[in-house]
């Protein structure tokens, strides 16, 4: 389901409470001195980076090769017999005969549709989940009402419910509502809130100075207006962060959509990729096509991340979310 996994959630809870500000150690005095230990350290960093990055490069390299050449040159580090055929097959730009000749399955793969489904699911879930979570977070941080702490602790409790335990009964509920194999069915459990988003936003809403809010209230603004014109703009950065994280999680979700969707009409990219891999043509898997599809599926996240990397990475620094 598209909510930060339990691990991310708890990570945030933990680090947020223990480590409010990243503390930089004073730079070591012998920073410029090159010691063998330091060289070894850098070598390890380089190895880690290669291990991390290589699969991404290999995806690209394979996607830009043609299948026949891949069999002959399995180890060439550059694309072999450069071809955009993999991408063409993914987007249905080749006829079935051409695709089969190039090592594809020739099956009718409606990739645009899966892409569209993923975009719809991730976008609607993000907007709805973040909005409703923000409303709740506001009620838990800036409104005065009886039972506030008790109700909030119930929400915190839901952080502890492991995902697997809710999936089967949630599937049954979606089935009873007649929403199996629909996009709404995939989105439904995630539309209302994510416990982690509420917790995360509450932390920031609590930090908005009381005086600012009171000044607006004295000027006659209602609490609803304070929320929309004061609290949300002042918390734009954390709201953006949680929105990006929600989008990424929704986009990458596999288990839940796999349960709910049966046909093309509700198939999202991750599920399509899984079955794409299973449709092996007689000649062996269409690796170029498969890697092209994988790359297309990963690309929006890579772009999103490239734009917001600093924000996401630093948010781990001070709040411990992913």
């Amino acid at each position: 389901m598209s909510q930060p996994t339990a691990e991310a959630q708890l990570g945030a809870v933990v680090v947020a409470s223990e480590n409010p500000e990243p503390r930089r150690d004073p730079p070591p005095r012998n920073r410029r001195k090159i010691t063998p230990r330091k060289v070894l350290g850098w070598v390890v960093v380089a190895v880690v980076l290669v291990i991390t990055i290589f699969p991404f490069y290999w995806m690209l390299r394979t996607a830009l090769s043609s299948n026949a050449a891949l069999y002959a040159n399995a180890t060439s580090l550059l694309p072999v017999d450069f071809s955009l055929g993999g991408f063409e097959r993914v987007f249905g730009l080749q006829s079935a005969e051409e695709a089969i000749a190039a090592g594809g399955s020739g099956a009718d793969i409606d990739f645009w549709r899966y892409l569209g489904n993923s975009v719809v699911v991730a976008t609607v879930v993000t907007v709805s989940q973040v909005f409703f979570s923000a409303l709740a977070a506001y009620a838990f941080s800036r409104l005065q009402w009886r039972g506030r702490e008790l109700v909030f602790s119930l929400f915190l409790l839901s952080l502890m419910v492991p995902l697997i335990f809710t999936l089967l009964p949630n599937f049954l509920l979606v089935k009873e509502l007649g929403l199996v194999d629909t996009l709404l069915g995939i989105m439904l459990p995630n539309l209302f809130m994510a416990p982690f988003a509420i917790f995360f936003l509450r932390q920031f809403f609590m930090n908005v100075p009381k005086e600012v809010e009171e000044a607006a209230l004295i000027d006659g603004a209602g609490k609803i207006r304070v929320f929309f014109t004061l609290i949300t703009p002042m918390s734009a950065a954390p709201i953006a962060t949680i929105a990006i994280l929600t989008y990424i999680t929704a986009w990458n979700d596999y288990f839940w959509p796999l349960m709910v969707s049966y046909s093309d009409s509700s198939r999202v990219l991750t599920v399509a990729l899984g079955s794409f891999a299973a449709q092996t043509p007689q000649t062996g898997p269409d690796w170029a096509g498969l890697m092209a599809a994988t790359l297309v599926a990963a690309l929006p996240m890579i772009v999103l991340f490239a734009c917001f990397a600093k924000r996401i990475v630093n948010s781990i620094g001070f709040s411990g979310i992913k």
């Binding site: 991390t52 990458n252 596999y254 990729l273 891999a277 890697m291 994988t294 990963a298 996240m301 990475v313």
Partner: peptide, 20 residues
């Protein structure tokens, strides 16, 4: 950022790349 990159792609993508 680079070190975090694999965490942003789905399990499915990671699985397929290593399958290859």
């Amino acid at each position: 950022s680079l070190i975090l990159a694999p965490y942003l792609v789905s399990n499915v993508v990671a699985a397929l790349v290593f399958l290859w």
